[in-house]
Simulated assay, not measured.
Amino acid sequence: MQQALVTLKVILLSNYINVLLVFVPLGIVAGMLHWNSTLVFVLNFLAIIPLAALLGFATEELALSVGQTLGGLMNATFGNAVELIVSIVALLKGEIRIVQASMLGSILSNILLVLGMCFFAGGLRYQEQSFNQTVAQTMSSLMAVATASLLIPAAFRASVPSDETTELLDLSRGVSIVLLVLYVLYLYFQLKTHADLYSEQESEDDEQEEKTITAWTAGGLLVVITLLVAFCAEFLVDSIDALVAASGISKTFVGLILIPIVGNAAEHVTSVTVAYKNKMDLAVGIAIGSSMQIALFMTPFLVILGWIVGQPMSLYFQTFETAVLFISVLIVNYLIQDGKSNWLEGALLMGVYAIISMAFFLYRPEDGL
């Protein structure tokens, strides 16, 4: 009994964000009792933030018990688990607009807001910081390929105007399969053939790699937190329509700006903290690597899942959205190509994200494909 209490204390004190856990039962109760939709959204919004932090904690603890290779694969798989769960729930409910916006929003928030905050926070303490240029360029190159995979369906739709979406869905599904293959190849590149490129990033984090809970406890925690996230995500998604009707904001803004804040809150804090400690390889790896996982794995996976469950999820995004993504990836590629960063570059990235946020707040695309 005493050991269980010690373990519970370790889990609860793993992150100061866990003080928000009080909103988990409140959010679930609010959803089950059908309280005001805005209140249901806010409560579950706040509830998912600490759950995301605990999910990351459990994944890292379990990864320490299974070895470096499998641990790296687990971190890659579960790194964006909250966004994936929310998106799956939304997809099953036919909220294609929410799914697409949350995927795009997660990419933009990571490569602009998170990376910008990392550069800025580190730059306040150090005049200039360096990071592994080869690793950063590899990930940004994959991001460029993923961006092209969204531009091509948009160009196809513009060139072949038709009310039928069959060809567009076929193209999206084919492209998604290619992207998933590329993601698997990247994992093999990272964990096997070119693992030495990532050794510096791993050695920076060695001082923190001490297990605080057992593998069985971490696995059980992972299951419990995943179920709680699924419950809160369902109530969150169910409340979006009423929230949009009551507030006047668009589904695109909710999915693109608000939902990524939920899933990435703990990850944002971690990235900025390690950047302030001059561990830029780790910070850049988290920010760009997370975006790359969303673009190469999560988005095509959701297209294939939509195919399986009969939902018309495609890689066709609105022209404005694809243009914003293209410009953002281009700017990030320019800033990281020298392998160095400073606070001004961070301010530039945060400024671009602020401009995009304002634009999407006023943006009112038609729902659907």
Rank of each mutant, 00 (worst) to 15 (best):
P153D: 15
P153M: 09
A154I: 06
A154S: 09
A155N: 01
A155D: 02
A155F: 09
F156G: 06
F156H: 09
R157W: 03
R157S: 06
A158V: 10
A158T: 08
S159M: 09
V160N: 12
V160C: 07
P161W: 09
S162P: 14
S162V: 08
E164Y: 15
T165N: 13
E167C: 06
E167M: 15
E167P: 04
L168W: 02
L168D: 05
L169G: 03
D170R: 14
D170Y: 13
L171F: 08
L171I: 03
L171N: 04
L171S: 08
S172V: 00
S172H: 05
G174K: 08
V175Y: 02
V175A: 05
S176C: 00
S176F: 00
I177T: 05
V178M: 11
L179I: 12
V181E: 12
L182C: 12
L182M: 07
Y183G: 12
Y183N: 03
V184W: 00
V184M: 05
L185D: 01
L185Y: 00
L187D: 02
L187N: 09
Y188W: 05
Y188P: 02
Y188S: 03
F189W: 05
F189L: 00
F189M: 00
F189C: 02
K192V: 07
T193L: 00
T193G: 00
T193Y: 00
H194I: 03
H194C: 01
A195V: 14
A195G: 02
D196E: 07
D196R: 12
L197K: 02
S199D: 05
E200Y: 10
Q201M: 15
E202P: 03
E202Q: 10
E202L: 07
S203R: 15
S203T: 09
E204S: 13
D205L: 15
D205I: 14
D206M: 13
E207G: 14
Q208R: 12
Q208W: 06
Q208K: 09
E209F: 13
E210H: 08
K211N: 09
K211F: 11
T212A: 09
T214A: 10
T214R: 15
T214S: 11
A215E: 12
A215S: 12
T217A: 15
T217Y: 15
G219S: 04
G219R: 12
